[in-house]
Design a protein around this nucleic acid. Sequence first.
DNA 1: ACCTGAACACCGTTCAAGT
DNA 2: ACCTGAACACCGTTCAAGT
Lengths: 220, 220
Amino acid sequence: MGSAEANGARPSARRSKADVVDAALGILDRQGLPDVTMRRIAEVLGVQPSALYWHFPNKQTLLAAVSDRILAPSGLLPSDDIAPRTANIAGIASRFRDCLLAYRDAAELVSSSLALGLVTPSAQHLIADVAIRADVPAPLARVAASTITHYVLGYTFHEQQRMQADSLGALADVESLTPSGAAVGASATTDFHAGIGLIVLGMSVSVAGAQDRGTRKTRR
Amino acid sequence: MGSAEANGARPSARRSKADVVDAALGILDRQGLPDVTMRRIAEVLGVQPSALYWHFPNKQTLLAAVSDRILAPSGLLPSDDIAPRTANIAGIASRFRDCLLAYRDAAELVSSSLALGLVTPSAQHLIADVAIRADVPAPLARVAASTITHYVLGYTFHEQQRMQADSLGALADVESLTPSGAAVGASATTDFHAGIGLIVLGMSVSVAGAQDRGTRKTRR
DNA sequence: ACCTGAACACCGTTCAAGT
DNA sequence: ACCTGAACACCGTTCAAGT
């Protein structure tokens, strides 16, 4: 009963790239990132580890494909309604975080794939585009988008690490607190949005100040 | 000539925890994080890998000690001069990044040690304290400090990853650009400060707005 | 107190060879 | 086109035993 075929894998069908990503994503969510090994993926697929190297040149590239799949839902169009630009930007950041929260250890995985340049930061581009269309100067828009992206990844990475530590019951004396000082996971979302709010506010004030100094426009 | 003792390690002296951290830090800076293995550290010390487990219970704890050493210079007192609070906060963030830039792959290492809760985020506490002493409400100060910390780690992680990729000559078609759209490493520092500026500005405006709405104070 | 020696249960990757 | 089988050069960790 320990055989590979007994693990739910079809015994002798051709595997596609997508199948490999499926298998890796399943292990990631059930066992966590350290268990996403080439050998475990192969085992789930009922295949030899070396078979994976026909589909992907190496493990990093495979993990980048997994990252792309995790982030796919964030590629939704920015919904060109005329809602306030700031709400749009905060909304994109929020959807970005939701994508990461959908799978265990996803923030850590995406963070390193992105740092390695193996995945395109679509959320970052989206935020910059929205800001630019809301008349934010392009360099400022790009800095804000980059700041938000790094913040979301860092915050969610830390958040998921706490979730796992808490579920293991360990963590001992280290306080598992939310940045504002509150206690548990419900306020993690509130604190997340507060951080995003700071950055968006900083961006808004920057552009307003620049306009005042630049064009001496409507001053009531 | 491949013997352990020939590698510059004293043959038969007792090793301290600090010696182990020294060895790990040296490998980190010269070879990078993937090469910081228990076996390589032991080799540099002229010792069996199992010997390390007398000094540290496991690899994660050892790496946390390395993280502490990397961050030690950032523990400098906030220099209680009466300089504008915002300059102080940006300065702490800047010194934090300088600590990370001092060793290869340091941001990645510290990021995961910190997420695992094995290292105390001293920079974050310092920023929150400085903000609170500058009359920023405590919850806002803590959110801002957390936002800045995550931003610094994420930004520097990405920055160091680019540095290594560039030095390897690889990276191919992926553009190695700074968030604002500029080309190379000199403007990485400028862009970093711009991001910090956004967050600090957002915090300042938040507290100013709250004061206006709360106490209806001096309005000229 | 500090370390050795040997083992256990793993890794990612390569490569000739099969179908 | 897709995969096997076998090997290579590694990992972190444990544990009895030495000094």
